[in-house]
Amino acid sequence: MAHELSFIYQVIRRDISSAVMPGLIFGLAAWHTAGGSALELVSQLGRGLLYFTLYAFTFCLSNQLMGVEEDRINKPDRPLAREMVSLRGASIRWVLAMTVYTLVGWWLGVLEWTLLWQAVTIVHNLLRGARNWFIKNLSMGLGVWASLEAGWRIASPIVPQGAREWITFLSVSVFLLVPLQDLRDIEGDRDSGRKTFPMVFGITATRRFLGVGFAALAVITHLLMMRLVGAPATMAGASPQVLVFDALLALTSLMICFQVLTRHRPEQDHKTYMHYTYWYCVALASTFVLV
């Protein structure tokens, strides 16, 4: 059991802040909005942790199964690259995990979003859709949609308009800005022939696009999303909590803008991408006071 838990952690550890935490945070926002009890909070955390661990594990394991040779170049610490388990053993674990994930999605009442993510996983990884920049970016945007819809509905069957707006906003922003993820893997992507965004449009052009994109994200998030429930986009009369979230999101966006334009080594690009995942989590946490 300890070995299996260690294996699961090693598979998903790079993606906890982007694949596990966001759904948990959004689910907690749903619990808070619904006025849930402390007992319901414990249940919500347990169900959310189970669901989103499977969400991350099924995707990450299949991705790593299809990219062992690339990982030996880009991420040699991954469990399959260092032969923590055999490829056959990993394949069996993936089939079992997909089966359990389907059953858990049905049990929690979010089967349609589970099936959507499984379809994205198969197209992105097994059918090698990730080798095309548009399919990869679209897959990540759909993944955000599936994750947040499921995260909210696990806690509450009704998704309010404010939460729906955040789901749409974050899905679109991830679709546009997820090429940041590709900057850290350029060497391996070039050797494998992947047509990621930087490979197609050029590394310098990609950095400029992302720099403009993250600067714009600070402004757009402020104008469109940082508002009181049901009020027009204005900070007049906003609560201190809203102002704090607005400032944090703007500063993080601008920091990412600066980093992507000035820090070009793979390990620096990885840190920049991780900062984007932190921005994403803070944006979701802001729904506690905005929805």
Rank of each mutant, 00 (worst) to 15 (best):
L5C: 10
H32A: 13
E112N: 00
A163H: 09
G143N: 07
A216H: 04
P79F: 00
G67D: 15
S6I: 02
H270N: 12
A119Q: 03
P160F: 00
A233I: 03
A2E: 08
L223D: 08
G141T: 02
Y278G: 02
M98E: 05
L41T: 05
I256R: 15
L248I: 09
F52L: 07
P240S: 02
R164M: 05
L183S: 01
R207V: 06
L115Q: 06
L111Q: 01
A155P: 01
G105D: 07
T168Q: 14
Q161A: 14
L170Q: 08
M199Q: 09
I135W: 02
F52R: 09
W152E: 05
L127H: 07
Q259T: 04
Y101C: 05
I256W: 15
V104S: 10
G105E: 06
V42A: 15
T58L: 14
M66A: 08
F258A: 13
I167E: 01
H32M: 08
F214T: 00
Y278P: 00
A238I: 02
R128P: 10
P76L: 01
L116N: 05
H124R: 08
G48Y: 01
L5T: 00
I154V: 10
V174I: 14
T221A: 09
E69C: 07
L176P: 07
F258W: 15
W145N: 07
L284V: 07
T277S: 11
R227N: 11
A215H: 09
P160Q: 10
L65A: 10
G237Q: 10
Q64W: 13
